[in-house]
Amino acid sequence: MIWLWILIPVVIIAIILIYYYNRFVVLGNRINNSLAQIDVQLKKRADLVPALVKVVKGYAKHEKQIMADVTKARAAMLKAGDIKGKVKAGDALQNALKSIFAIAENYPDLKANQNFLHLQQELSAIEDKVAYARQYYNDGVLYLENASQKFPGVIFFKLYGRQKKDYLKIPAASKEMPKIDL
Protein backbone atom coordinates (compact mmCIF):
# COMPACT_ATOMS: atom_id res chain seq x y z
CA MET A 1 0.00 0.00 0.00
CA ILE A 2 2.78 2.43 0.92
CA TRP A 3 4.35 1.89 -2.47
CA LEU A 4 1.13 2.85 -4.11
CA TRP A 5 1.05 6.13 -2.20
CA ILE A 6 4.50 6.95 -3.47
CA LEU A 7 3.93 5.68 -6.98
CA ILE A 8 0.76 7.66 -7.70
CA PRO A 9 2.21 11.15 -7.07
CA VAL A 10 5.35 10.24 -9.02
CA VAL A 11 3.28 9.18 -12.01
CA ILE A 12 1.14 12.31 -11.78
CA ILE A 13 4.21 14.55 -11.67
CA ALA A 14 5.76 12.69 -14.60
CA ILE A 15 2.57 13.15 -16.62
CA ILE A 16 2.49 16.87 -15.85
CA LEU A 17 6.16 17.25 -16.81
CA ILE A 18 5.64 15.43 -20.09
CA TYR A 19 2.46 17.35 -20.81
CA TYR A 20 4.10 20.74 -20.47
CA TYR A 21 7.23 19.67 -22.31
CA ASN A 22 5.20 18.48 -25.29
CA ARG A 23 2.95 21.50 -25.17
CA PHE A 24 5.83 23.91 -25.51
CA VAL A 25 7.38 21.78 -28.24
CA VAL A 26 4.12 21.79 -30.21
CA LEU A 27 3.61 25.54 -29.81
CA GLY A 28 7.24 26.23 -30.74
CA ASN A 29 7.08 23.99 -33.80
CA ARG A 30 3.93 25.68 -34.94
CA ILE A 31 5.71 29.03 -34.89
CA ASN A 32 8.71 27.64 -36.77
CA ASN A 33 6.42 26.08 -39.32
CA SER A 34 4.60 29.34 -39.96
CA LEU A 35 7.96 31.04 -40.46
CA ALA A 36 8.78 28.41 -43.07
CA GLN A 37 5.43 29.18 -44.73
CA ILE A 38 6.28 32.87 -44.88
CA ASP A 39 9.64 31.94 -46.37
CA VAL A 40 7.98 29.84 -49.09
CA GLN A 41 5.74 32.73 -50.11
CA LEU A 42 8.63 35.22 -50.12
CA LYS A 43 10.59 32.90 -52.35
CA LYS A 44 7.67 32.55 -54.74
CA ARG A 45 7.45 36.33 -54.91
CA ALA A 46 11.14 36.62 -55.70
CA ASP A 47 10.78 33.99 -58.44
CA LEU A 48 8.02 35.93 -60.17
CA VAL A 49 9.87 39.26 -60.20
CA PRO A 50 12.23 38.64 -63.19
CA ALA A 51 9.27 37.65 -65.37
CA LEU A 52 7.41 40.78 -64.31
CA VAL A 53 10.39 43.03 -64.99
CA LYS A 54 10.73 41.47 -68.44
CA VAL A 55 7.09 42.09 -69.34
CA VAL A 56 7.11 45.67 -68.05
CA LYS A 57 10.37 46.48 -69.88
CA GLY A 58 8.70 45.59 -73.15
CA TYR A 59 6.15 48.37 -72.70
CA ALA A 60 7.74 50.93 -70.40
CA LYS A 61 11.40 51.27 -71.37
CA HIS A 62 11.94 54.63 -69.70
CA GLU A 63 11.07 53.52 -66.21
CA LYS A 64 14.61 52.34 -65.60
CA GLN A 65 14.78 53.64 -62.05
CA ILE A 66 11.83 51.57 -60.88
CA MET A 67 13.13 48.44 -62.61
CA ALA A 68 16.50 48.91 -60.95
CA ASP A 69 14.82 49.37 -57.56
CA VAL A 70 12.81 46.19 -57.93
CA THR A 71 15.80 44.16 -59.08
CA LYS A 72 17.85 45.52 -56.21
CA ALA A 73 15.15 44.77 -53.66
CA ARG A 74 14.86 41.23 -54.99
CA ALA A 75 18.62 40.70 -54.75
CA ALA A 76 18.62 42.06 -51.20
CA MET A 77 15.83 39.67 -50.26
CA LEU A 78 17.63 36.66 -51.66
CA LYS A 79 20.79 37.66 -49.81
CA ALA A 80 19.10 38.20 -46.45
CA GLY A 81 20.20 35.55 -44.01
CA ASP A 82 17.63 34.99 -41.29
CA ILE A 83 13.88 35.07 -41.66
CA LYS A 84 13.54 38.44 -39.95
CA GLY A 85 15.84 40.00 -42.52
CA LYS A 86 13.99 38.24 -45.31
CA VAL A 87 10.64 39.48 -44.11
CA LYS A 88 11.98 43.02 -43.97
CA ALA A 89 13.52 42.77 -47.44
CA GLY A 90 10.31 41.15 -48.66
CA ASP A 91 8.38 44.22 -47.53
CA ALA A 92 10.81 46.47 -49.38
CA LEU A 93 10.32 44.35 -52.50
CA GLN A 94 6.56 44.55 -52.12
CA ASN A 95 6.77 48.34 -51.97
CA ALA A 96 8.95 48.43 -55.07
CA LEU A 97 6.44 46.20 -56.87
CA LYS A 98 3.68 48.57 -55.90
CA SER A 99 5.36 51.35 -57.82
CA ILE A 100 5.51 49.11 -60.88
CA PHE A 101 1.77 48.50 -60.67
CA ALA A 102 1.28 52.24 -60.17
CA ILE A 103 3.16 53.18 -63.34
CA ALA A 104 1.30 50.48 -65.25
CA GLU A 105 -1.70 52.81 -65.05
CA ASN A 106 0.09 55.05 -67.58
CA TYR A 107 0.60 52.25 -70.09
CA PRO A 108 -2.72 50.89 -71.33
CA ASP A 109 -1.02 48.28 -73.52
CA LEU A 110 0.89 46.93 -70.56
CA LYS A 111 -2.27 46.89 -68.45
CA ALA A 112 -3.99 44.84 -71.12
CA ASN A 113 -1.14 42.33 -71.44
CA GLN A 114 -2.27 38.86 -70.36
CA ASN A 115 1.08 37.96 -68.86
CA PHE A 116 1.15 41.15 -66.87
CA LEU A 117 -2.36 40.61 -65.57
CA HIS A 118 -1.51 37.07 -64.59
CA LEU A 119 1.65 38.13 -62.75
CA GLN A 120 -0.21 40.94 -61.04
CA GLN A 121 -2.83 38.51 -59.79
CA GLU A 122 -0.22 36.02 -58.62
CA LEU A 123 1.76 38.70 -56.80
CA SER A 124 -1.30 40.11 -55.11
CA ALA A 125 -2.29 36.58 -54.00
CA ILE A 126 1.21 36.12 -52.57
CA GLU A 127 0.89 39.39 -50.72
CA ASP A 128 -2.33 38.14 -49.12
CA LYS A 129 -0.72 34.83 -48.24
CA VAL A 130 2.29 36.53 -46.65
CA ALA A 131 -0.11 38.58 -44.55
CA TYR A 132 -2.08 35.48 -43.52
CA ALA A 133 1.05 33.48 -42.72
CA ARG A 134 2.26 36.37 -40.58
CA GLN A 135 -1.05 36.49 -38.80
CA TYR A 136 -0.76 32.77 -38.06
CA TYR A 137 2.80 33.28 -36.86
CA ASN A 138 1.71 36.04 -34.50
CA ASP A 139 -1.21 33.91 -33.29
CA GLY A 140 1.32 31.18 -32.52
CA VAL A 141 3.50 33.60 -30.60
CA LEU A 142 0.46 34.75 -28.63
CA TYR A 143 -0.46 31.17 -27.70
CA LEU A 144 3.10 30.46 -26.65
CA GLU A 145 3.19 33.64 -24.56
CA ASN A 146 -0.08 32.79 -22.87
CA ALA A 147 1.08 29.26 -22.16
CA SER A 148 4.47 30.37 -20.90
CA GLN A 149 3.28 33.22 -18.69
CA LYS A 150 0.35 31.60 -16.99
CA PHE A 151 0.77 29.53 -13.85
CA PRO A 152 1.94 26.77 -13.69
CA GLY A 153 3.21 26.92 -17.27
CA VAL A 154 5.59 29.70 -16.32
CA ILE A 155 7.53 27.34 -14.02
CA PHE A 156 7.97 24.63 -16.63
CA PHE A 157 8.84 27.14 -19.34
CA LYS A 158 11.79 28.31 -17.23
CA LEU A 159 12.57 24.77 -16.14
CA TYR A 160 12.96 23.57 -19.70
CA GLY A 161 14.89 26.72 -20.61
CA ARG A 162 12.79 27.42 -23.70
CA GLN A 163 13.11 30.61 -25.68
CA LYS A 164 10.48 33.26 -26.20
CA LYS A 165 9.61 34.27 -29.75
CA ASP A 166 9.12 37.78 -31.05
CA TYR A 167 6.08 39.08 -32.85
CA LEU A 168 6.50 40.00 -36.48
CA LYS A 169 5.65 43.67 -36.79
CA ILE A 170 3.49 44.55 -39.73
CA PRO A 171 5.05 47.59 -41.37
CA ALA A 172 2.89 50.69 -41.44
CA ALA A 173 3.21 51.04 -45.21
CA SER A 174 1.85 47.59 -46.00
CA LYS A 175 -1.28 48.20 -43.98
CA GLU A 176 -2.68 50.48 -46.63
CA MET A 177 -2.73 48.51 -49.83
CA PRO A 178 -3.45 50.42 -52.99
CA LYS A 179 -6.38 48.70 -54.60
CA ILE A 180 -5.73 48.19 -58.27
CA ASP A 181 -8.70 47.33 -60.42
CA LEU A 182 -8.05 44.37 -62.63
Partner: peptide, 16 residues
Protein backbone atom coordinates in the same frame (compact mmCIF):
# COMPACT_ATOMS: atom_id res chain seq x y z
CA UNK B 1 -10.32 29.30 -60.93
CA UNK B 2 -7.03 30.74 -59.71
CA UNK B 3 -8.67 33.34 -57.45
CA UNK B 4 -10.68 30.61 -55.72
CA UNK B 5 -7.51 28.57 -55.16
CA UNK B 6 -5.50 31.58 -53.96
CA UNK B 7 -8.14 32.59 -51.44
CA UNK B 8 -8.38 29.10 -49.97
CA UNK B 9 -4.58 28.80 -49.81
CA UNK B 10 -4.35 32.12 -47.98
CA UNK B 11 -7.03 31.15 -45.48
CA UNK B 12 -5.34 27.82 -44.89
CA UNK B 13 -2.16 29.69 -44.03
CA UNK B 14 -4.15 31.88 -41.65
CA UNK B 15 -5.71 28.90 -39.90
CA UNK B 16 -2.84 26.40 -40.17
Amino acid sequence: YSQYHHSVEGLCLASG
